[in-house]
Design a protein around this nucleic acid. Structure first.
Length: 471
RNA sequence: GGCCCCUUCGUCUAACGGUUAGGACGUCGGCCUCUCACGUCGAAAACAUGGGUUCAAAUCCCGUAGGGGUCACCA
């Protein structure tokens, strides 16, 4: 069998969103699993909405996710160019072939005439379909025209969708649709098809908003005398309210997740599991996905994007990272939060304790500000724990710490226990006021860790500041 | 409205005629504990509905309801 060839063909009208990323991922996974090729093609025929910036954003998103393409923009390939606007000759040639074979014809109806007919049909509550006005008119290339495909009027087309099974479309629901605009730019159904033919695409996996296009395209493949590819239509991704995922639902661009401190592998992992499953397994490395992915295991139902679960997946991935890498990756997010962090021992200590407590790098920067910024005392915490009764405890811890040459966890534990036992208190009675003094709040990593991360000098400064408040 | 597709816990899903309908996120509770988190133990939580077929149906068939997609010189 020939080498599988799959493609992702976004139109550059916006950033790479979650849904597009998953479509790209499934194509990529299958190409990698089968030893096939993954082709990236830019469908920029909507000249009103296509932008250079969107194109760049899409490439950036794919790269961040690690979905590399074998042929396409910036890498080239034997079937280029990979931009539709640079392939207009190809579409014209194929349309002409269809016309000469009697499978397509020039239509001279004006937009105005058609619009009027459409409105009339609407007013009469009739389904409008192009009536075939120009079907048998003699060809006159000198007059302005679009090209239409001659659809069969009877019968039906059935194809086997890899995820949805058999899908049948009666031909009488189809119309002679426009394949080439007046300016020679193809419409989606034709442009994508000609590209898929000329690029040798063997499997088309795309959003299921395209199921209704598939029969028409198959008919065109047949008219061209080309074997159609296999199709796999992927269910949509919905927001929490079960409507199509959009900006209203929060972050929908993959780069937004990069900026919030998600690991690309975790995003890929989550996206793969949205609509696809492999037994009870939740966490997959990229290698495992490549090994296990199959369109046969993709569900037929639309799925709701669940940010909570994605955070959980990300957390699992973060916990699997070596400490040094965790620290290294956290650094830019701390800096972005305006914190003066460096890739040093302090950051590595922080990484160790942050790993269990933060589910993204963004959360690390949020949650552990106080290690790098001045203490902001939470009023409630202050009122509850920085009390006159706690003063001697803070003083005792302060003095004990000051007396330590090089604080370590065991020494600190002895110190806190000693202070508590001397007053017949639990360690918690000592730890909480100290925690508030050092972090400003009542929730933090273990108090000995906090002291160690802050360092002896800074810890003393903060304890002194708290003592001054109580003086 | 026509055509097409879909329907298992709140959410993602497993089940491929015989299971106490399993797992995961989230939620709630116990334990652990210097707080928080982690961990751990446990709980609540689903086969849309009506008919068939079958010894047996979440699984197969038909209908109904609900949801979605699509009906352009957009993609």
């Amino acid at each position: 069998m020939a080498t599988p060839r799959l493609r992702f063909a976004p139109s550059p009208t916006g950033y790479l969103h979650i849904g597009g990323a998953r479509t790209a991922l499934f194509n990529w996974l299958w190409a990698r699993r089968t030893g096939g090729r993954f082709i990236l093609r830019i469908e920029d025929t909507d000249q009103g909405r296509s932008t250079q910036a969107a194109e760049a954003a899409i490439l950036e998103g794919l790269r961040w996710l690690g979905l590399d393409w074998d042929e396409g923009p910036e890498v080239g390939g034997p079937h280029g160019p990979y931009f539709q606007m640079q392939r207009l000759d190809l579409y014209r040639e194929h349309a002409e072939r269809l016309r000469k074979a009697g499978k397509a014809y020039a239509c001279y109806c004006s937009r105005e005439e058609l619009d009027a007919q459409r409105r009339k049909a609407e007013a009469e509550k009739r389904q409008f379909r192009y009536p075939g006005t120009c079907r048998d008119k003699p060809h006159d290339p000198s007059k302005p025209h679009v090209m239409r495909f001659r659809m069969p009027e009877t019968g039906a087309t059935t194809f086997q969708d890899l995820v949805k099974g058999a899908i049948t479309t009666p031909h009488d629901t189809l119309q002679d649709e426009v394949i080439l605009r007046g300016d020679g730019v193809p419409l989606y159904n034709f442009g994508a098809l000609v590209d898929d033919v000329t690029m040798g695409i063997t499997l088309v996996a795309r959003g299921d908003d395209h199921v209704n296009n598939t029969a028409r395209q198959i008919l065109m493949y047949q008219a061209l005398g080309v074997e159609p590819p296999t199709f796999a239509h992927l269910p949509m991704i919905l927001g929490a309210d079960k409507t199509r995922l959009s900006k209203r639902h929060g972050a929908t661009s993959v780069t937004a997740y990069r900026d919030m401190g998600y690991l690309p592998g975790a995003v890929v992992n989550y996206l793969a599991r949205l609509g696809w499953s492999h037994g009870d397994q939740e966490i997959f490395t990229l290698e495992e996905l490549v090994k296990d992915f199959d369109f046969a295991d993709v569900g037929a139902t639309a799925g709701v994007f669940n940010p909570d679960k994605m955070l959980w997946v990300n957390h699992e991935w973060m916990r699997a990272l070596p400490e040094e890498e965790l620290a290294r990756r956290a650094l830019p997010h701390l800096r972005a939060a305006g914190l003066d962090a460096a890739d040093d021992g302090k950051l590595r200590l922080l990484a160790r304790v942050a790993r269990e407590r933060a589910r993204s790098f963004g959360e690390i920067a949020q949650q552990f500000r106080y290690f790098y910024a001045p203490v902001e005392l939470d009023p409630k915490a202050r009122a509850k724990f920085l009390t006159p009764e706690s003063r001697p405890l803070l003083q005792a811890v302060r003095d004990g710490l000051a007396a330590m040459a090089a604080p370590a966890a065991e020494g600190l534990e002895r110190l806190f226990q000693g202070v508590a036992e001397a007053r017949a208190l639990g360690v918690g009675k000592v730890a909480q006021p100290v925690r508030v003094a050092l972090t400003g709040g009542t929730a933090s990593p273990g108090i000995y860790d906090v002291v160690l991360i802050l360092g002896k000098e800074e810890s003393l400064r903060r304890l002194d500041a708290a003592l001054r408040l109580l003086a």
